[in-house]
Nucleic acid binder design. Structure first.
Ligand SMILES: [Zn+2]
Ligand SMILES: [Zn+2]
Ligand SMILES: [Zn+2]
Ligand SMILES: [Zn+2]
Lengths: 131, 131
DNA sequence: ATTACATTGTTATAATATAACAATAACAGA
DNA sequence: TCTGTTATTGTTATATTATAACAATGTAAT
């Protein structure tokens, strides 16, 4: 995990850094605002970095929120099997790392017997704090 | 299913109609273009209808694609447990109706024992045609 | 008729994301 | 070193997706 970071470009490091420092998902334009002091002034600079970081699995996109969160699931070397829980009240997001769940979904076949190489699952509910 | 439609408003019916006629997911602005001849001229008119239709489960949003598809899963009276397969080559989308899968996910508990009242799952792969 | 409430129409704008191209850096082979 | 090649960065403009705000109209109960 740490090694991979060595190969990141300058902008990729800057963007990853800010996301990793955030406990919760960040939106692209909030990232942009936060990295402007570091010289990244325009959306494409941020989006390019985000694309790459998603591709190599250092971060994940929370699709229903258009936001990006650092991967902290050590089992998540793969970028193609992601699961999250999202609190609909406070928007708290947590990556779910359940080998049972990922096994189940990775092996899932539809009615035609088709298997999939990738999935993204988002659970919604009310977190403990909000209850 | 048919009854519910009776209670839809004019704009909701128009928008649902165009989505149901489409075999595949439609984007909001494509819907807008298609309903302009029916008098819906501005985005809010379409987005309001979409919001309502999603809420009552007549359509679903494909989050990773920002697109909307009619629900054709008769078991999907619930709007809170959705699963789709998406072809990454041709973008073909199909709603998955597997009672086994939905049972598994509805009963899923995370490490803290928390259960969720809602989920959305998107599988990605290459469909038969594209292979 | 009056109130209340839902729906619609309308304009403007916010938020998210990409196209296109120029400039610079990194680097391998001649 | 020079040179071609590729990746990365910088920059401007624009496309795409979505909502705020408020006025107008419709619907139905009292
Ligand atoms: Zn992860
Ligand atoms: Zn919460
Ligand atoms: Zn459905
Ligand atoms: Zn396909």
């Amino acid at each position: 995990m740490a090694q991979k970071k060595e190969y990141l470009s300058k902008n990729q490091k800057i963007v990853l850094d800010i996301i990793e420092k955030s406990a919760q998902p960040m939106k692209a334009y909030s990232i942009l605002f936060n990295v402007q002091k570091k010289g990244l002034k325009a959306p494409p600079q941020v989006y390019r970095a985000l694309d790459k970081l998603v591709e190599i699995g250092k971060i994940h996109k929370i699709e229903s929120r258009n936001a990006f969160i650092a991967c902290r699931n050590s089992a998540c070397t793969i970028t193609n099997a992601t699961a999250f829980s999202i609190c609909e009240s406070c928007e708290y997001v947590k990556e779910i790392s359940s080998s049972k769940l990922s096994k189940y979904l990775s092996n899932f076949q539809d009615k035609e017997g088709m298997k999939y190489n990738k999935y993204n699952l988002e659970f919604f509910g009310i977190c403990k704090k909000c209850k």
